[in-house]
């Protein structure tokens, strides 16, 4: 089995950390693995909305740390996807409420009961980010194909290696094949070239994503969503399976052949 505790981070905000976390956790849970998603973005709670669990939260991570309740009681069980649990962030506190050692203790107490533990990191490189990365076995960096996001992802990668973590894996999110074709957007290949990280997957831009989030339904549960399909493939790759990269097409012409060759896909 691949690494158990996975932290999803990006440096820059709004690139899709929480969406990817929620979807990957759901995809793995739907496959029968027992998964918990921890929202480490204290004070800016979002992951519950993406998973559609906002109305079921009673206790949160800060309650666990303060000893108000045991961690098992704070976990929100998803009714739709069996095996999926959420440990929500506190909305009324800020990042200082959770210290790295607190999160390590929580993760360690959950480790034996779950197959995968996802940690949704806050944006930025301050204490909140450090807290989220500290317990992780592996780190996934999300980058959009634009320079600001790449630079931040690069910074985060540097910080992760300074913290002694193995080299992060990369997900290129919100790639628009049409714009790439026109030369208005960087290619996933360019992103990989600059960051020099192992590419875990490319998630195409999907206009339907907003409505999935608004409905509280992870896109991976939908058969029709192209982003959902890409995320399901990433989940497969997390399990160590070799899945070919999606043929992201802009009017008939495949653009990812080079990357596929680069990463041994067929």
């Amino acid at each position: 089995m691949a690494d158990k505790v996975i932290c999803v981070t990006s440096g820059k905000g709004g690139v899709g950390k929480s969406t990817v976390t929620g979807n990957l956790a759901t995809a793995l849970a739907a496959k029968g693995y027992k998964v918990v998603a921890i929202d480490a973005d204290i004070g800016l709670r979002n992951l519950d909305l993406i998973l559609g669990l906002e109305n079921r939260i009673v206790y949160d991570i800060v309650h666990v740390i303060e000893g108000v309740c045991p961690v098992e009681k704070a976990l929100v069980k998803d009714k739709r996807t069996k095996n999926l649990y959420l440990l929500p962030a506190a909305q009324t506190k800020d990042k200082s409420a959770v210290k790295p050692e607190d999160l390590v203790a929580i993760v360690e107490s959950l480790r034996n009961n779950f197959d995968f533990i996802f940690i949704d990191s806050p944006a930025g490189i301050e204490e909140g980010f450090k807290t989220a990365v500290t317990p992780a076995d592996t780190v996934i960096v999300i980058a959009n194909p634009e320079m600001a996001s790449i630079r931040d992802a690069d910074r985060v990668t540097g910080l992760c290696s300074a913290m002694g973590k193995p080299e992060p894996k990369l997900i290129v999110n919100r790639l628009d094949p049409k714009k790439v074709e026109k030369g208005d957007m960087l290619d996933a290949e360019d992103v990989v070239q600059i960051l020099g990280l192992e590419l875990l997957g490319i998630v195409p831009e999907d206009k339907e994503m907003v409505s999935y989030i608004n409905r509280g339904e992870p896109a991976v549960l939908s058969e029709t969503s192209i982003a959902g399909k890409a995320l399901r493939n990433i989940a497969e790759r997390l399990l160590g399976k070799e899945v070919p990269f999606l043929e992201l097409k802009a009017e008939g012409e495949g653009i990812l052949n080079k990357i596929k060759k680069l990463f041994g896909g067929t």
Partner: peptide
């Protein structure tokens, strides 16, 4: 990587990339 800074009184040889922000 971005945020890294290297300085030397003499020559620097880098076997790797110097990314934006470094």
């Amino acid at each position: 990587r971005s945020g890294d800074k290297i300085s030397s009184s003499g020559d620097i040889i880098i076997m790797g990339n110097v990314n934006p922000g470094a």
